[in-house]
């Protein structure tokens, strides 16, 4: 796919940062505000789609390695399943970290309040794991579809051309 014009690329340079930060916010604050791992991961993967569409497949795929995304996806799924299995003393997916103190175990006061960031036990941990998995999975789908297009376009011997060069 050809890279778009310089106007689109400048706007993309600015808004990609906001998309990434908003997605990370939605993932990390998943147990306080609306959202969670899946929603925030989809927002961050939209950033990958924006960069690929604005800059073309050739420039982005030259410095993106799909192996890193594959490792991130496997890590996210393994952390998720491991955190589920660690509570198997009571039940599968038991929240064994909630209210125990430490990094994930602060106790929130009852009633309406604004929430504490390092609370909620394995819920917060699973949010981050699922967010990692969704980011890398959806980005891998987009990256491999772009590689597939380049496969078909290379058969005709056409190369990428921008609008402004």
């Amino acid at each position: 796919m050809n890279p778009l014009s310089v106007v689109v690329r400048t706007i993309c340079d600015i808004f990609a940062w906001f998309l990434g930060i908003f997605g990370a916010y939605v993932i990390i604050h998943g147990h306080i505000s609306p959202g969670g791992g899946f929603q925030g991961g989809a927002v961050v993967a939209t950033m990958a789609a924006l960069l690929l569409v604005a800059y073309g497949g050739k420039k982005v795929l030259s410095f993106v390695r799909p192996g890193i995304y594959t490792g991130m996806e496997a890590t996210g799924l393994l952390v998720f399943i491991t955190a589920g299995f660690l509570g198997i003393g009571t039940t599968f997916f038991y929240n064994f970290l909630a209210g125990q103190g430490g990094l994930f175990g602060s106790v929130v006061p009852l009633g309406p309040n604004s929430g504490i960031l390092n609370s909620a036990g394995t819920i917060s941990l699973m949010n981050m794991a699922v967010g990692l998995e969704v980011v890398s999975g959806l980005s891998l789908i987009l990256i491999y579809m772009f590689k597939g297009i380049r496969l078909f376009e290379g058969r005709e011997g056409r190369s990428e051309r921008g609008h402004d060069r």
Partner: peptide
Amino acid sequence: AIAEAAIGAGLSTAIYIIA
């Protein structure tokens, strides 16, 4: 709403255009 806006309006549109 967040999931629909990210998946439906962002990612699926990009995937359709790539296809």
